[in-house]
Design a protein around this nucleic acid. Structure first.
Length: 657
DNA sequence: TTAGGGTTAG
């Protein structure tokens, strides 16, 4: 319905009257009759801060930043009548375009008006400040308004929950109940988001009870928020129950469930749900693809990831950074760095995360030269690097042994006014340590501007293990034990340092200390993907149906690689076994079983992709290099740190990992 | 006037 606004005393100046007509149309979706303006154009110019000419533009309000102020000017000059709903519309526009500065001016004007006690525009004010991330102002409006309704409470609660202050949102919710206001579906949506952000399943369950009581469980917004809340709390079963009960589901409900499994590292389930979603006739969105790619990246599932990518291409969704970044990451983490680069090159618009993801991909694959080139390219044509960019670049230098480049980048951070955080320090210690500059690494730690944490000392400890420095290793391990006594890694590292120095009783003491304090070692396992199915192996796996064939295969391979010079290095195996026992133990490390299985079950010549949940041991690394030579296959092993591409007897990491 | 979902590092 169109309503005519009669602007009184309007201008003979056509540019002003045209502007007013244009504003009326675009701003209030109404027609406007101009009858002559006697006010001076200078005043308008002052308010706009820009030449009047700008106002003649068709897309006036999108371009002219101060359209709201013109309306206030017209009100002040008696050219337009104000009412409560006009203030409301002005504030809504400020919210929509996130124009905090103009919003404040409208707010002041509103306070001087005779409508300042009206609840609705005050609620809109709360919402405006909340959306402009100015919660102090939102709270002030709420506290000072003479009368509040349920919307006032909900707008403020939503503000806190959207501005990462979930706790305050929940506190306010209980207060709202105390004051006797009944929450509606909007309120529940926001408090459930808050409970999810706090990963507080207990609170979430109580709220769920409230939703049921008030009859909102079936509402698709509330239902999806419940699914999302349970998913963020890691309670996938409960999320699934709510999801199944929803008679009216939409894409968001599906996405909540899929993203939940993706976050938990349950890639297979996320993929299965993606198929179900499509079968159910739902169109996957950017959010869906993003979660599914993250799920594939997590389990290193290249083939399923490619399959989902084909679906996305068919669906016609543009390759924007939003999904392209996760797609790139998926290819990189699944071992296909070439595909990752292709995605990067095809991105419609690259943002800082795109560049960081590409740098990370190169870093994980040990491609130091490419990382340096990519970083330089980013400096030339890309967005401003951020702290993650530098972390990626430093990690790549560390993994590739590029000491000078790494130290140069660390210095460069100052130029970009980026304060190094603890992760940057850890990486530098790692870089110096791996390069054998242990004293320099120690000196660096002592001169750090922030307090070193367990990770810093762990980096030094790892370097001491690599370069067999007992004294400094013991010192670093003691620091780690003080700061993080429950981590099994440092205990094992120290025990191994002692063992390789021949100090068996000390090694035993550390193991005993570890066992007594209840520190548990994560059991090692490996995965390999054959024809779209993922097979998992643990060390000395006796349960596998093909165990005999696998063992025979590995024994055959061992004989072959021994012929061309492989000598088992048993220093990575527990010290208390005899030599033969140690060799046997090594024989059946999970990655070897996975490799033998892949050799038995995949076509000759095809690359083999294996994933391991902990760092690959030194002896397996050596063995794999020899294997890649005798079987003439590329073996791509992903461990927790990085990728190893084994080809023709050598590894892409240059034995530097 | 108030509501939902995603990504890079360690």
């Amino acid at each position: 319905m169109t309503k005519a606004i009669h602007v009184k005393n309007c201008a003979t100046n056509p540019s002003i009257s045209n502007s007013i007509i244009s504003i009326a149309r675009q701003f209030f979706s109404t027609t406007c009759a101009v009858s002559g303006l006697e006010s001076e154009p200078e005043g308008v110019r002052k308010l706009f801060g820009s030449p009047i000419g700008v106002l003649q533009d068709k897309d006036l309000l999108k371009k002219a930043p101060n359209g709201e102020l013109l309306v206030l000017y017209l009100i002040d000059n008696g050219a337009m009548d104000a009412d409560a709903s006009l203030y409301n519309q002005l504030l809504k526009k400020c919210t929509e375009w996130k124009r905090l500065k103009e919003g404040r001016v409208v707010h002041e004007h509103f306070l001087r008006s005779r409508f300042s006690h009206y609840t609705v525009p005050n609620n809109t004010l709360i919402n405006m400040y909340a959306k402009c991330e100015s919660m102090g102002d939102a709270r002030k409006v709420f506290d000072e308004m003479p009368e509040r309704d349920m919307v006032s409470w909900t707008a403020l609660i939503t503000g806190y929950s959207q501005n990462e202050d979930a706790k305050e949102g929940l506190v306010l919710f209980t207060e709202m109940l105390r004051f006797g206001f009944m929450p509606n579906q909007f309120t529940f949506g926001s408090v459930l988001k808050a409970a999810g952000a706090l990963e507080s399943g207990g609170t979430g369950r109580q709220l769920h009870g409230g939703c049921v009581k008030c009859g909102y469980e079936e509402n698709v917004y509330v239902g999806s928020a419940l699914v999302d809340m349970y998913a963020r709390c890691g309670l996938m079963d409960e999320g699934k129950i709510v999801f199944d009960k929803l008679s009216c589901k939409n894409e968001v409900s599906w996405n909540g469930l899929i993203a939940g499994h993706a976050r938990k590292g349950e890639g297979e389930i996320a993929l299965k749900l993606f198929c179900e979603m499509k079968r159910g006739g739902f169109q996957p969105t950017h959010f869906t693809f993003s979660s599914v790619y993250a799920a594939c990246a997590n389990i290193g599932a290249l083939e399923p990831g490619k399959w989902v990518h084909v679906h996305m291409i068919k669906s016609g969704l543009e390759l924007i950074a939003f999904i392209g970044n996760t797609l790139l990451d998926m290819y990189a983490k699944s071992g296909s760095i070439d595909d990752a680069r292709k995605v990067f090159d095809r991105l419609v618009k690259k943002d800082v995360v795109s560049w960081n993801s590409m740098l990370t991909a190169y870093a994980q694959h040990g491609l130091g030269k490419e990382t340096v080139e990519c970083f330089e390219e980013m400096r030339r044509i890309g967005p401003e690097p951020n702290e993650v960019t530098f972390l990626c670049a430093l990690t790549a230098c560390s993994h590739a042994g590029l000491l000078d480049n790494g130290m140069h980048y660390f210095e460069l951070m100052k130029k970009f006014k980026i304060e190094p955080n603890i992760s940057h320090y850890v990486t530098i210690v790692d870089l110096l340590g791996r390069s054998g500059q242990l004293d320099r690494a120690e000196k660096f730690i002592n001169e750090m501007l922030i307090e070193p944490n367990a990770a810093v000392w762990k980096a030094l400890l790892g370097a001491c293990r690599m370069h067999k420095n007992l004294e400094l290793g013991v010192y670093a391990a003691e620091r780690v034990f003080e700061l993080d006594p429950h981590d099994s890694g440092p205990h094992i590292l120290l025990s191994n340092i002692y063992a390789s120095a021949g100090r068996r009783s000390d090694a035993a003491r550390v193991r005993k200390m570890m066992n007594q304090s209840g520190v548990k070692k994560e059991p090692a396992c490996s995965w390999v993907e054959i024809e779209n199915a993922v097979h998992m192996f643990v060390a000395n796996d006796d349960a596998h149906p093909q165990r005999e064939e696998i063992r025979n295969m590995w024994e055959k391979i061992t004989d072959k690689i021994k012929e061309i010079g492989y000598v088992p290095d048993t220093s990575h195996v527990l010290w208390f076994m005899d030599q033969q026992e140690r060799e046997e133990r090594l024989q059946y490390h999970s990655e070897r079983l996975a490799l033998a299985f892949a050799l038995l079950n995949s076509p000759p010549g095809s690359p083999i992709r294996i994933k391991k949940n902990i760092r690959v041991c030194g002896d397996c690394h050596t063995a794999f290099k020899f294997v890649s030579k005798v079987v003439d296959r590329e073996i791509i092993l992903r461990d927790t740190n990085r990728f190893h591409h084994f080809r023709n007897g050598s590894c892409s990491c240059g034995d530097y990992w």
